[in-house]
Write a protein that binds this DNA or RNA. Sequence first.
RNA 1: GGCGACGUGGCCGAGCGGUUAGGCACGGGUCUGCAAAACCCUCUACGGGAGUUCGAAUCUCCCCGUCGCCUCCA
Length: 489
Amino acid sequence: MALALYNTLSRRKELFTPLHPPYVGMYVCGPTVYGDPHLGHARAAVTFDVLYRYLRYLGYRVRYVRNITDVGHLEGDADEGEDKILKKARLEKVEPIEVAQRYTALYHRAMDALNVLRPSIEPTATGHIPQQIQMIERILAAGYAYVVNGSVYLDVEKYRRDFAYGVLSGRNIEELLAGTRELEGQSEKKNPWDFALWKRAEPTHLMQWDSPWGRGYPGWHIECSAMSTHYLGVPFDIHGGGIDLIFPHHEAEIAQAHACFGEAAHHQARFWVHNNLVTIEGQKMSKSLGNFITVEEVFTGHHPKLTRGYPPMALRFLILQAHYRSTLDFSEEALAAAYKAYLRLISAYQRLSQLVSHPYSTYSVQAWRERVFSALNDDLNTAAALALFFEQIEDIIRLYRNEIHLSGEDLETLRNTWKEVLFDILGLRPIEAVQREKWDRLVDFLVRLRRQARSEKNYMLADILRNELRAVGVKLLDFPDETLWELSE
RNA sequence: GGCGACGUGGCCGAGCGGUUAGGCACGGGUCUGCAAAACCCUCUACGGGAGUUCGAAUCUCCCCGUCGCCUCCA
């Protein structure tokens, strides 16, 4: 059993092996912190969280770097447009760093709720200006960039003579040229496909730093190249991000790494892994279409497309139910279905603890466990892995009824697999673990009281108890000889 | 226009030449004081056409449709 990952660079699945076992270096493009974290952020974060967790489970020592972009990305065409963080700062009349800090905090809160582990290192672009400048200097020294009026651009034409450009996205310059909407006379670039490594800042620009080329700020792609290689070396093992970043962002990163480190950069990272997007009714989420949904809105239900709020695990489960390279079409119907499925899964897990072992097993748990891991190994097919758990639920019920049996050892394997895969690897969370014991005893008592009332045909009391229990989220399961209960939400 | 992906039963969603994926919903049943839940059963699909093959949702070709990237974006 070995993990195979789809590598965008080669366009096929490849067996994953780290460059320097047991260490693994993984870099994932994090959010630009100028707005509320949305479903897209959640999907990317959960996707790479699962990869991170699984690599660790497999015994690797993972250094996971995920950046916070707090400067630099422009909106609008080519050279023009406005830094999104600056724009937000102006709108809200606060310092740019206040914008970045606030949305970073919101991002953390949302991802924590989704049980997404924090990366090992979470560097910010503004905190790594020297590293970026140093990289630009090396690129200039190597002759792959030029300076114009205090700005530095990567010379793609020059770069192409020594390296292939467009290997990741499968594009060539001619095609790019055909698709470029050139701004006549406005560009100081030699060629439209050149991109900025450093931009000269106007005096009014709120965020600017000293550099060998004057006051300015870093280009749109350099931060990721600088920070990833700074912390992980060149090349490193895995670079991840959303599929929409393949071009131009990741293509530019590869070019920067080659231009800086030469052929030794080997495309900067050996595995390029990309998660697909979240769509709303078949359309990409965007503010202009008015179908933009934030993570918080899912939790609270405060959105026109939602009739109620859903707990974080419902969203996490929904994301896990699709393969990360497929688009995920979001709707309340799908979310509600995922939530129900998740609750059923957790109930089955809780039932596992009630099973008793037998001298021998009547079926193979090991075979099932291997199928679960081969699903995970097959390019992180979490959807297929989860399906196997639902198939196992039927067996758990039969075990509970003593229709089939498991030896102590196999039962242990079964329990461990559930715990390891569902909670450690997929990062799901069982409902409420805190204060559970006292709560259980209290509920047990009330349930027994209701049973007593029912046996005395005191249905009024029985119904009061049932309604009150339901009001606090306790679901009763009446069986002829006993009453079980579980938390509904 | 270029590059790429996709079209699976009411909805979401695996699938990678030959088993029922799975979930949710619906319907039927068991259970129950009535319920709910749970459990059991049912629903067996693959955009259209042609081809390859003993056999195709899975491969090839054509057509139709959808989406993404080519500008910041997870």
